[in-house]
Structure formats: C-alpha cells, structure tokens
Design a protein around this nucleic acid. Structure first.
Lengths: 217, 217
DNA sequence: ACCTAAGAAACTAACTGTGTTTCAATAGTT
DNA sequence: AACTATTGAAACACAGTTAGTTTCTTAGGT
C-alpha cells in the first residue's frame, strides 16, 4: 500500500527495459524473426508477464518505433538550432555523425521485414524518417552549395540518398565488428571519401576525363 | 520417337526458363518468401510439372546460385584478361560497371533470407562472391595506387567495401524506379562522387581542415 | 479411339508463432 | 503460520504457411 508508488516505478522500469531489449533485438534480427517467446527468454520472464506489459506484439512494435521517431526528431532539431548558420562543413559533418549514430544499430533488411509484417507502422515511420533526415541533410548540402563549397552538378536528392545509404550500410555492428578499425575511424574515412573522393589531385583530372567519354556514350 | 531429341531440347528450354524465372523472383523477394506454389503460378504450370524439373526447392535454389556464381566468375576473369594493365581508370570503371550490372537485381535483404533458409548454400555462395569481386576490385584499386592516381591514406579493404556497398544498395530496381534518372546516369553520378568527392576544389581544402580537427579529437 | 502427359485442386504433414490457460512455486502481508 | 497475489514453466489452442504428394480430369498426339 505504502509502496504503491514504488511498485509503479518498478513496473515502469521493467517496461522500459523491455522496450529497449525489444528494440535491440528487433533492429538486429528483424521484427518478424524475433518472436514473443524469444523476447520472454531474453528478458528472463514468462510470456505471461511479458503480455502484462504490452498486450500484443503490434503494440510493442509501435512503441519501439515511436522511440526511434522521437530520437530522430530530437537529433535533427538539435542540429538545426545549435549549429551556426554558415558553418556548412561543420553542419554536414554533424548531421552525418548523428545519422550514423542513430542508424548504426539498424540492419538494412529490418525495414523490409517491418514493411512486410506491419505495413501501416512501416509507412508511418518511414515517412517521418525520410522527411526529417532528408530535410536536415538537404539543407546542409544546400547551404554548402550556396557558398560554393559543394559541387552542384549532381542532383541534390541523389547526393543525399547516396551519403545516407553509405553511412547506414557501413555503420552497422555486423560490419564494424569484422573490421580492425573503430566506428569513429570508419566514419571519418567514409566522410573523407564522400567529401573528397578517392582520387589524388593528379588522378582526379584523369578519371574525370575518362568518365566524361563514358557518359557521352 | 523421332522427336525424342526435340523433346529433350524442349524440356531443357523449359527448365532454363524456370531457372531464370526462379532467379528473378528469388532475387527480388527472397528465397523463403517465394513458395513453390508461387513459382508454379508464375510459370503457368502445375506444381506437379514443376517438381518434374527440380525435385526439391533446395535443388532449385542451388541451381540458381550456381548460375550467379558462374556469371560473377566470367565477369571477373573477363576484366582481368581483357582490360589493359595500366588503364587503371578504365579498369575500375569497368569493374564497377560490371558489379553494378550483376548486383542490380539483388535486394540486400535477400541474402539475409538465404542465410537463414539455406545456411550452407549461402556460405558457399558468399565465400565465392566475396573472393572474386573483392579480388577484382582490390587489384584495380592497387594498380591505381601504384600509379599514384588513388590516394593511399585509406585502408584498401575499406575503400573496396565502401564502393561495393554504395553500388549494390543504389543500383537496385526499387530505388532506381523511384528516380527520374536512368540507371546509367545514377551509376555515373555515384562514380563521380566516389572518385572525386562531393566538394569543389575550393571546398576540398576547407572540409579537409575541418575533418582533420575532428579526427584528432 | 487410345495413351501419355499435363493441369487443377485437394490433401498431408510438419512447422511456426501469437496469445491463453493451467498449475505449481514463491514472495509479501498479516 | 496462513492467506493472497504475482510469477514462471509448460502445455495448449488456433490459425497460417508451405513443401511435397495424390487423385481425378482434360487435352493432344498417334
């Protein structure tokens, strides 16, 4: 009776731990591959108790994705407000870094899985993610272009998608753990490549010429 | 009787068409998601007939992946033998292009699916693919480095993986069909970015400085 | 007309996964 | 120590899926 307050808090803690565990498992293996049995085992509780906290798998999935949405939103508004307007270099690096962090635990196949298992939830999440990440990225790239720092001979949405794709597929634990470099090192190398290209100054003109003849074909 | 020869040929043609159809469906939707019923319908034949050509799903999957292996192999040895030794620009572009072609119909989630459904077949295929593609790519990059055309401050296996990742995740029909550019255009833009970076000459030094301070942190 | 091969569709059997229920054990309360 | 509420373990029901088989019918070639 006296501990009613405390009991509620404890329940909330467990619910939170469950949410985070589910997120981790779902993001790594996919929503359909992780069963409620799996989660119960992973949590060290019975399914009965599990269903006390979330009345169905769908509710749990929803809750997980709400947290993701929230995180992405916070992240983007942070960058938009805190990074000085004309520090384009700074800005794109910050955006990239944040995106890298927030995506580093999502395996690419997981979204296909979600789309198949819970199409409506997927739709909702995907729309939000695209809108906010792409917006942050696009604005950073546009500012850089306006200042003549980024090239403008490549469609902006393609550049955004490319950069995003690269980060999200390389900054995941499975690949990172097979490498001898730290995540930060890998991230910096990716950024170097995208920003500066693989070529030396000498090589750049050669390759550019070669590419030009190819494109005309 | 007289047409025994002809009959066999006809059977072979059907078997081949089945193989190609299965490949297409498997590569797009995944091995476990396409059932034998699906394939029978897609082929306009009954399951009975389908099982005449391949005695089990596993055999069909194996056959499909053997064809893929074969294609990759041919492709790589073609490049290795036909492209002149010192045309590094040419060579990396060719390798990229061929890889792009051969991967453009494989959705990333399909390999996860295979790994889960037929682990042994996956293992075999993956080892082969990695070995041959990475080999071709690495040798092209190395030659470019030796000639001072490619930078050598980025680990080679990372550069290879990066390039490969980018191509395989952007050159798939789902993304391409949502774009207003042709596959060739998209491909060329990717190559431009990887080879030259997103920056203008002016911006390159600024970003490089910014990256440097970040990396030291 | 006959015979063989193909199709359509039902069927088996196994497996999977969500959500529920039963029953025994346990912890907290009085 | 006796009572109560909560939990775990395991079995369960129930629905969906799919590989592979079988039965019966139909069409085409000879």
């Amino acid at each position: 009776m006296i501990e009613e307050q405390l009991d509620k808090t404890k329940d909330d803690l467990i619910r939170e731990r469950l949410l985070l565990t589910a997120m981790q498992e779902f993001m790594q293996y996919g929503f359909s591959r992780i069963s409620m049995d799996d989660l119960a085992i992973r949590m060290g509780m019975s399914k009965k108790t599990l269903y006390k906290y979330y009345p169905s798998k769908e509710e749990l999935v929803k809750a997980v994705l709400e947290v993701r949405k929230q995180r992405v939103g916070e992240l983007m508004s942070f960058i938009e407000t805190k990074v000085p307007k004309h520090a384009f270099g700074e800005k794109i690096i910050q955006v990239s870094q944040k995106v890298a962090e927030s995506l580093s635990d999502v395996q690419p196949h997981v979204m296909y899985d979600l789309k198949k298992s819970f199409p409506l939830i997927f739709e909702d999440f995907d729309a939000f993610k695209k809108a906010s990440i792409v917006k942050g990225f696009t604005s950073a790239l546009n500012e850089g272009r306006a200042s003549g720092v980024f090239r403008d001979d490549i469609p902006i949405e393609l550049a955004v998608h490319m950069h995003l794709t690269l980060i999200s597929s390389m900054m995941n634990p499975e690949y990172l753990s097979s490498q001898k470099y730290t995540p930060l090192q890998v991230f910096n190398m990716i950024l170097r490549c995208t920003m500066e290209g693989l070529c030396t100054n000498k090589g750049r003109s050669i390759v550019e010429a070669s590419l030009f003849t190819k494109t005309v074909l």
